[in-house]
């Protein structure tokens, strides 16, 4: 166990951030699709030091049965952090924060899925945060969207997510943990980039309306970049399958 301290400055003299990034620079992001054997679809993301696994089971029979809907599938989502994912051990019991995040993540993905194609079934999405270093809700949405695509579930678009915020008076994109904790504001968003539809929008901290608009645009630009990476990751998986088949 160790406690982190607030760094003296979140932005240095050269205008760079604690991890050396420029204000509009994303952390290095690596998506992998189809990483788990048993799940119908799965994906892994490493975004800076944040590491998250997502797995999809379904469409499958709903348990308990009374939760089934006659006209569409139910999407169920569990966002969960491993006890070892943060500096101080987190109790494995679901916290209020995890309950809220499970809800907003589900609501960020639902608009993208053709749930009406699978009445009386459930699509179960499990997100495990293995290491948390800020931006876990956004990274969860981006990686879950890939797991859903990997499971072959028909979707209107991929959902990409990215946050923007304000640290030391400067607007920045894709906040890491210290920036999130000690910054002045955090605006996480998710969108179906191809459809120009925002499916997650939250904010805490303080921004005037003008700053908020700028932050929103920065987050949208972040989503665009992540969207391209998501498509590459999916293509990569199918390129691998083709290679295997051609052998």
């Amino acid at each position: 166990m160790f406690l982190e301290k607030r760094p003296e400055k979140l932005i240095d003299k050269k205008g760079l951030r604690t991890d050396g990034r420029k204000p509009d620079e994303l952390r290095p992001i690596k998506f992998e699709v189809g990483v788990l054997g048993n799940a119908d679809g799965s994906a892994r993301v490493q975004q800076g030091k944040t590491i998250i696994l997502a797995a999809v089971y379904g469409p499958r029979e709903v348990h308990p049965r009374h939760l089934a809907l006659p006209d569409r599938a139910v999407l169920r989502c569990r966002y969960h952090m491993a006890p070892f994912s943060v500096s101080r051990r987190k109790s494995p019991a679901p916290s209020r924060r995890e309950m809220e995040l499970s809800k907003v993540i589900r609501e960020a993905l639902e608009p993208a899925i053709f749930l009406e194609r699978y009445p009386r079934t459930s699509i179960d999405l499990f997100i495990e945060v293995l290491q948390a270093d800020g931006g876990t809700r956004c990274a969860s949405i981006s990686v879950a969207s890939l797991a859903l695509a990997d499971a072959g579930i028909p979707m209107r678009d991929l959902v990409a997510a990215c946050a923007a915020g304000k640290v030391d008076g400067k607007l920045v994109v894709d906040l890491n943990d210290v920036e999130d904790k000690y910054g002045e504001a955090d605006v996480p968003i998710a969108m179906m980039v191809g459809l120009n539809a925002v499916t997650l929008l939250q904010m805490d901290g303080m921004l005037d309306p003008k700053e908020f608009r700028t932050a929103l645009n920065m987050a949208v630009e972040g989503c665009r970049q992540i969207y391209e990476m998501q498509k590459e990751a999916l293509k990569e998986k199918y390129a691998l399958i083709r290679e295997e088949l051609e052998k």
């Binding site: 605006v187 459809l195 499916t199 997650l200 939250q202």
Partner: peptide
């Protein structure tokens, strides 16, 4: 002072950037 201090979208629909504006 007219600053925004919290935002939450809820429900399983979406918003366009124009609607947020």
């Amino acid at each position: 002072s007219g600053k925004i201090c919290a935002i939450q979208k809820g429900g399983s629909g979406f918003l366009t950037l124009e609607e947020i504006d």
